[in-house]
Amino acid sequence: MTTRDRLLGLTVAVLWGLNFLAIRVGLDHFPPFFFAGLRFLVIAVPVVLFVRRPNVPLKWLLLYGFGFGFLQFAFLFAAMNAGMPTGLASLVLQSSAPFTIVLGALLLREKVSRRQIIGITVAVAGMTLIGYDRSQAASLIPVVLTLLAGLGWAVGNLGNRLAKSTEPMRLMLWMCVVPPLPMLVLSAAVEGPSTGWRALADSFSIDGWPALAGLAYIVLLGTIAGSGLWTVLISRHPAGVVAPFSLLVPVVGIAGAWIFLNETPSVIALVGAAVVIAGCLGGMATARRASSATPLAEPLRV
């Protein structure tokens, strides 16, 4: 993995870590499933009108969108709406990393080196330490919902890999076309057919503008920029090489929740964050050597 790609991975971690703060602001105004559907609908409409669909099998595009878009965010938004603390949500969601590595090894037969296994194990141990320290802040149901969101993310990663697109940015944009309809149908069934739309109308007010600002961050930075860069990385490298970068997201998420939401981390949580970073660095060291001997995917064409 080149220095540029490592910097891209770190950029994604920062964008996605702060994304949890924007989600929290949005959920204070919108019902969760409607908010999840709205974030993708805002992107899907111009994509269908102006962006050519990538030349990939439809089934893998649907798998990518269903896992990464629908499953991940339906479960995540439901978990945070049910009381999952913002910083803890950013941590537990990164269960997608071990899920991705295990599914990639079992279903795609991707090779994982011994040092990568050690690195990911150390990072997961750090996440476990943080989770143990902060588990009193959340009940079991929100934690389980967030773990299911991590599994959905991992399923989406496999769909991305199987698509083998030489146009990863277009693939990411068209992935956003998949979740809106099922998410809005779920919202109408669970939250009521007009609840979300009334909340959207109310957001165009002095009290509602923070929710729109949160939506703008999620769409422009969290989804288009963050997911676009992630799609580029995972199209160039095996899933097990890219996945450890996602373990840096909770470090940013917990720090952001600490600064802006007064979710103060303890010493144990800070030690756990340091362990996560150490594990990521260990996995990245192996990834650098592996990528120098393995041809990368074709460069991005937009």
Rank of each mutant, 00 (worst) to 15 (best):
R6V: 14
T11N: 04
V14K: 00
L15W: 01
W16C: 08
L27M: 03
L27W: 01
D28P: 01
G37I: 02
V42S: 09
A44C: 04
V45Y: 09
V45E: 10
V48E: 09
V51D: 12
V51L: 10
V56F: 07
P57L: 10
L62G: 04
F66R: 00
G69Q: 01
N81P: 01
T86H: 04
L88E: 03
L91E: 02
S95C: 10
R109Y: 10
T128H: 00
Q136S: 14
Q136A: 15
S139I: 00
G150L: 06
A154F: 00
G156W: 08
G156F: 06
L158N: 01
L162W: 08
L162K: 15
M172T: 10
L186C: 13
L186T: 13
P193Q: 07
R198I: 08
L212E: 06
L212W: 08
Y217H: 03
T223F: 06
A225N: 00
G226V: 01
G228A: 06
T231E: 11
F245K: 03
S246F: 05
I254L: 14
A255V: 15
A255T: 15
A257F: 08
A257L: 12
L261N: 03
N262K: 14
N262H: 14
L270D: 02
A274L: 15
V276F: 04
A278S: 13
G282T: 12
R289H: 14
T294Y: 06
T294A: 14
T294S: 14
A297I: 01
L300N: 11
